[in-house]
Every structure is written in C-alpha cells, then in structure tokens.
C-alpha cells in the first residue's frame, strides 16, 4: 500500500516541468470529474464549473486505497472546495488535499490549466 500512495506527490505550479495534454474540456462533466492515466499514475481532474475552477488530485482515496475519487461528488465546506469519496464519504479539500472530516492522509494535488478547449495537468517529470 505504502508504495501505491508514495507515488503521488503534490506538484506546485512553480515545479511544473511537463504540461500533459489530458483531454478536451467536454470530456469532463460539469461540476464533476474524470480520471486520466499518466506514466502509471491515475489523476482525477475536476471541472468545478459552478465556481469556474479546475482542480486535479490523485485518483486514489487514501482511506481504503480505491481508485475512485474522479467519481466523487463536488461541494464546498465554508469557502473550501471539496470532493467526497463515493465509498465512505471522506471529504478532501481540492485546494490542499487535506482530509476535512477525518484524519486520512492528504491527497496529492496537481496544477491544471485550460487552453484552447483542452485540459492540461502539470507534472514535475
């Protein structure tokens, strides 16, 4: 397990070396998410259209180690945008990856940009 989670490390925007062209904007449902594969990693990309914001995090929920977060439900707690895991409703901040309703490990998060109808995720390698 530890090796599965260890692969996922937060990438800050200044650390981005590769902008991976993930998919076209319409592959991502409004106020929803979808997963992409990049070098063996599974990354969930969220189109939070209600807020006009895009986020990306690891697709793996740290609670029961399930590749599922892209199918989670979006929402907010106070000002913080969040995603709820479909399995046991663990919620995580989309901005920081912190588990908001428990003490699970943080999610790794990735920068996202949208250019000319395509969604790009930033990786450090």
């Amino acid at each position: 397990m530890t090796e599965v989670t260890a692969e996922y490390k937060t990438v800050k925007s200044e650390e981005v070396k590769v902008w991976h062209k993930a998919a076209s904007v319409d592959a991502f449902p409004t106020d929803g998410g979808a997963a992409i594969e990049y070098k063996g990693l599974q990354v969930a990309i969220f189109n939070f259209s209600r807020r006009g914001e895009w986020y990306a995090s690891q697709n793996l929920c740290p609670h029961k180690k399930q590749m599922i977060l892209s199918r989670g439900m979006l929402g907010s707690e106070g000002q913080e945008p969040k995603v709820a895991c479909p399995f046991h409703k663990k919620t995580f901040s989309l901005k920081t990856g912190v588990n908001l309703n428990g003490s699970e490990c943080d999610l790794a998060t990735y920068p996202v940009k949208v250019e000319e109808g395509y969604v790009y995720v930033g990786f450090s390698q």
Partner: peptide
C-alpha cells in the same frame, strides 16, 4: 474509467472463491 485512454482500471483485481470471482480485500 479514463478519459485519455481506452484501458480499464489496471488496479482492479479479482480472485477465485467457490468457482466464481470476488474482489481482493480492501487495499
């Protein structure tokens, strides 16, 4: 499962029980 490739979720695993499949335990 993915929007940038046709492959299914590679982490999904099953094993055998009484002649049928079952998912591997959590994690």
């Amino acid at each position: 499962h993915f929007v940038n490739t046709e492959i299914p979720d590679p982490t999904m695993k099953f094993e055998d029980m009484r002649g049928q499949k079952k998912p591997v335990e959590w994690g």
